[in-house]
Amino acid sequence: MLMLVILSIIFYVLGFYKHAFAYAGFLLQAVYISQRGLQLDRLPLVGPHDTLFFMSASIMLFAIPMAWQMKDKQRFMNSIFGLVIFFVLISMLYTPHNKPLPPVLTTFWFETHVAFSFFSYALFGIAAVLGILYFFRNGEAFEVFQYKAILVGYCLFSAAMIFGGIWAFLAWGTYWLWTPKELWTTILWLFYSLYLHARLRKQWAGKPSVVLGIIGFLIVMFTYLGVSLLMKSSHTF
């Protein structure tokens, strides 16, 4: 199993030379996730190893169709490969969670809550990459793609929050808990709400909103890793 992860990293590195290799790396990631799913008999979405790996694969999943519509896909995809390799490497620092899940976690609402959260994190990551490319390449197109990535990501993130609320109500009797994780999740949601509203104003359109799109991903990372590792909450690893 570990071999699949290492091979996927090698293929992604080769992807800088020829993109086809990176697509093969993505396929290997999909095989690894499926294998773990079959082995555990559930979606492998618990603990930092599986979630980081899933997020890295999700980045590719959304980046590929986006690249089809781009002129400058070479630079975009190379940046994406870098981001994917980074997250796969971090995922390898953590031991996979192989224990059976408590009955309360084996539900559709939990699985969709987590899957949608990481899909949205992946899109926010892509948006940050597009924001950085906007500044380096001064490409207006990257700004529009960043907006599209954030809009889809925001929709999925909202769905993740709503599904999480439904699950929490069914599991614990409340759709909201006062913990730092919930507050950071709300901060993240409000921040992207701010981005979507700010972009409608002339003064914020262009560079300022692109900067917001980059900052957003830093908040994503703190909400996901920082809060889970440093603060006590219902989402602690």
Partner: peptide, 18 residues
């Protein structure tokens, strides 16, 4: 959100892209 997404994604023009 879903209805806005479907309508907005189509309308949003990407300068210089196909």
């Amino acid at each position: 959100m879903i209805s806005l997404l479907v309508l907005k994604i189509k309308r949003e023009d990407v300068p210089g892209e196909r």
